[in-house]
């Protein structure tokens, strides 16, 4: 298995960042993800779409092993990040999560100041040499999270005191601050107003230059606007995966078509 992975990596090393093979996820008796095979490309925004409960969040969480924190969750199959199986016993999930950052469906700022929220990751991973360095990282991250202007005068106020949309952008900035290679975003805009959504979408587009971004969304328009690749999930199956343009204009599977035209979901 491992050998094939290496050859695979040499073949399309420039594009494939994550490649999943035959992934199954069970929650106790629920079979939440079935036989998913997908190759996610680097420096690309990939959108996961599909009706509620189809397993988008579950699959996203397998990509940085966040499912390890759920006792009843079992993952089978293999997921290669840069050709290395992340479920290999040799792999340290903590190290992995520093490389594969995550923004959750519900904003979850820490009960700390705005500054400390952003500085959390860099401090843990020793990314800043000194305080001045850290200040720079914090400011840069807040700017990239499109929230700098709103919080620059109250960096030491609690992060939990922000509005829901501001909290979500704070969480995005927090994830960006650790300089991950892959950024997983689970419905990052579900709590945002159209203006903040626009800012986050711009941010995602910007992040694409350096990172591999995976975003779960319920908004077709958003998927169409920000992503280059789209994966459509239905009842735990990956039904269709391809260029966003193709999926939205010319879907192959009838289920995909029904979903994007609004007939299932």
């Amino acid at each position: 298995m491992y050998d094939t992975a290496v050859t695979e990596q040499t073949v399309d090393q420039t594009t494939t960042k994550i490649s999943a093979r035959n992934v199954q996820v069970h929650y106790a008796d629920t079979h939440a993800i079935r036989d998913v095979d997908v190759k996610i490309e680097d420096k690309t925004v990939t959108a996961f779409i599909g009706p509620s409960g189809c397993g988008k969040s579950t699959f996203l969480r397998t990509l940085n092993r966040m499912n390890d924190t759920i006792d009843i969750c079992r993952v089978q199959g293999e997921i290669l990040l840069d050709g290395e199986n992340i479920y290999d016993p040799k792999v340290d999930p903590v190290q992995l999560r520093a490389k594969v950052g995550m923004v959750f469906q519900k904003p979850n700022p820490f009960p700390k100041s705005i500054y400390d929220n952003i500085a959390y990751g860099p401090r843990i991973h020793g990314l800043a040499k000194n305080k001045a360095d850290l200040d720079v990282i914090v400011e840069k991250s807040l700017r990239r999270g499109a929230i700098w202007n709103e919080v620059k005068d109250r960096l030491h106020a609690p992060g939990t005191g922000l509005s829901g949309g501001q909290q979500q952008r704070l969480c995005i900035a927090r994830a960006v601050a650790t300089e991950p290679e892959v950024l997983l975003m689970d419905e990052p805009c579900s709590a945002l107003d159209p203006i903040a959504t626009g800012q986050v979408e711009e941010l995602i587009d910007e992040l694409r230059k350096n990172y591999c971004v995976v975003i779960v969304t319920h908004s077709m328009q958003q998927a169409a606007r920000v992503s280059q690749k789209t994966a459509f999930f239905h009842l735990g199956n990956l039904v269709e995966y391809g260029d966003t343009g193709e999926i939205f204009t010319n879907p192959i599977d009838p289920r995909t078509e029904s979903y994007i035209t609004g007939r299932i979901g």
Partner: peptide
């Protein structure tokens, strides 16, 4: 809340951190 722990683990912190 568990989301607090998830947030920290998702940033690559260890359990004790």
């Amino acid at each position: 809340p568990q989301s607090m722990r998830d947030g920290s683990l998702g940033l690559g912190a260890t359990k004790s951190e």
